[in-house]
Design a protein around this nucleic acid. Structure first.
Lengths: 333, 333
DNA sequence: TTGAAAGCGATACCAA
DNA sequence: TTGGTATCGCTTTCAA
């Protein structure tokens, strides 16, 4: 049988109330008895039943993390960040995965709500409107990571415009004028259309027109990168001299496709990527990239919640990014 | 205020007992009232309080997953597998990360126990003895994934010997006799020493001696792979013609180190890896690998638990692996 | 500093 | 098919 508070209380000749207070370090008690009780509890192998505790105190120590099931190599990093901040505070991470199956979505969503999570962290995820509505009516704070969803939801993210502008600026400074955005460039989601807009805007600010801008792809996959130069354009006569990959994986796809066609990078094409995970160092040539600090994004988001600063109004926190110059950009000036 | 069962019961003019039975599809009730109740519950935005439910029913719908915080690129895949099997059954995954900090370990462990998890899944992880002891005294089933811990703990894994033997056999069939095992080859953990032993055993079965076997490295990292041929051995006079990398990342490290030194793979060195994730396709040349079916391992493990077959005695389930021949092995016969 | 007792929200047994 | 009610293990006033 499982050891309960009552058992411990009996063994210690105390009331459950006192034992509870001691074991949760709440309220008043003498340090002498406290010591004794803690010892007894340990010996008996007592473990609090968190469900009972949550129920009685009408609160939960769990926060939900919703991760898209499609390939996102940075989810790991973010979760680590969240986790770090969480360990210190005693909160629990309830990590759930979301795919396209609506039945699954409902269920995921249900576990979150039935566990009375204190907050929901969305990882680069645009959840269906009905979910959003539910969350809000239950007044569960939502924090979006790596992307700004709308004007109500708080977010911790890199500054998307700066990310794009830094890259464009870097390429322009090396003499490039015809630039492609490759990866997730579709107009149907919030996230990708923002990037697309930022790209155009940044081009403009560099005195370049939409004639200088090229787009390819609907997702952040390796295949999209690969196909961009093999199927999307004539690899022997690319209309652009540089490409911005919306994710590292896309960049590697481009590099491999070029290599496989005996075209050298950066001589035949310059490539830069967004994200800057380990992959960019493992590529040959190593990729110039703008690195996002994912772990930091996770840490900050969690602390934002813990410090309860995330109450009513929206907060947007930008986490700095860093341009890392490596060997995938040719100076053609 | 949060909507409770009682509220729904009142609104429906029924007892909480009936409503509970209906909403959990347990016991008898008429489909007519059931329909009405479900509708009312939905309208009121009712969500069961899982903590209360767990408490009352004296069981938990949560299972714990313990993931090592060090870089393991397959954790993702396994979690997806676990998740898939879990969604259908209504269980929840409580995913926790384990690092070397003992205080953290205790805490992780605490959340697991305080949540009364029904089982604990260990991802390629050798947990401290005291944890193991606790888990067993609380009679929480433990299932180890991708590795066999001892003769008591159930496991779902690839057959490690077959993995190693397939690789050795493949290399030998291509005329290689001097072979290196690179990556995690240390003798201090169960997992790595088993691999090492298997390697030696397999060599023997192929009429090769320990003189033909080489070892390098203490972890599964890219750096270890890279250093093996740059620092571990003289890259211009490697004593082996083929290398088995204990993880994909290690293999890529070797490939890059060779490339950077203007040595071609497989001409100067043949490389095969264990795991077979996407990375092996992205490498140039593409890597010959023995592919583990991680998602399947997760799925099977979870089902093993759900079907309750994992009661008293140990079970070892082997999930088939697949040799994928690509371009990183030279035939030197 | 300690104890008694009233919940928390659901489940499940036993009656009706 | 439905309802009453004890119970799960803990927290939290309020008194002692």
């Amino acid at each position: 049988m499982v050891v309960t508070l009552k058992d411990v209380a009996q063994a210690a000749n105390l009331s459950v109330a006192s034992v509870s207070r001691i074991l949760t370090n709440r309220g008043r008690y003498s340090e002498t008895t406290a010591k004794r009780v803690r010892e007894i509890a340990r010996e008996m192998g007592y473990f609090k039943n968190q469900s009972a505790a949550d129920l009685a105190s009408k609160k939960s120590r769990a926060v939900g993390v919703v991760v898209p099931l499609i390939h996102t190599n940075f989810a790991d990093e973010i979760i680590k960040g969240l986790y770090e901040a969480t360990v210190a505070s005693g909160y629990e991470l309830l990590i759930t995965y979301l795919d396209d199956n609506e039945a699954h979505q409902t269920q995921v969503f249900n576990t979150l709500l039935t566990r009375q999570v204190g907050a929901v962290f969305l990882l680069s995820l645009d959840i269906p409107a009905w979910m959003m509505a539910q969350l809000t009516t239950q007044s569960i704070p939502i924090i979006s990571l790596t992307t700004i969803l709308n004007e109500h939801i708080s977010a911790v993210t890199s500054n998307e415009f700066i990310v794009m502008d830094t890259l464009v600026d870097h390429l322009v400074s090396k003499g490039h004028t015809n630039i492609a955005l490759i990866g997730d460039t579709k107009l149907t989601t919030n996230i990708s259309s923002v990037r697309r807009r930022n790209f155009i805007e940044s081009m403009k600010q560099h005195q370049l027109t939409t004639e200088n801008a090229f787009f390819y792809g609907n997702d952040h996959s390796y295949e999209t990168g690969y196909q961009s130069v093999t199927e999307g354009y004539d690899i022997n006569a690319l209309p652009f001299t540089a490409a911005i990959a919306t994710a590292d994986l896309v960049g590697v796809g481009i590099v491999n496709a070029m290599n496989d066609a005996n075209k050298s990078i950066p001589n035949s094409l310059s490539v830069v990527t967004i994200d800057g995970l380990q992959l960019t160092e493992m590529s040959r040539p190593q990729l110039t990239t703008i690195q996002q600090n994912f772990a930091e994004i996770g840490r900050i988001a969690m602390n934002l919640f813990i410090e309860n600063s995330i109450d009513q109004q929206q907060q947007i926190i930008y986490v700095p990014t860093k341009l890392i110059e490596r060997d995938s950009v040719l100076d053609i000036k």
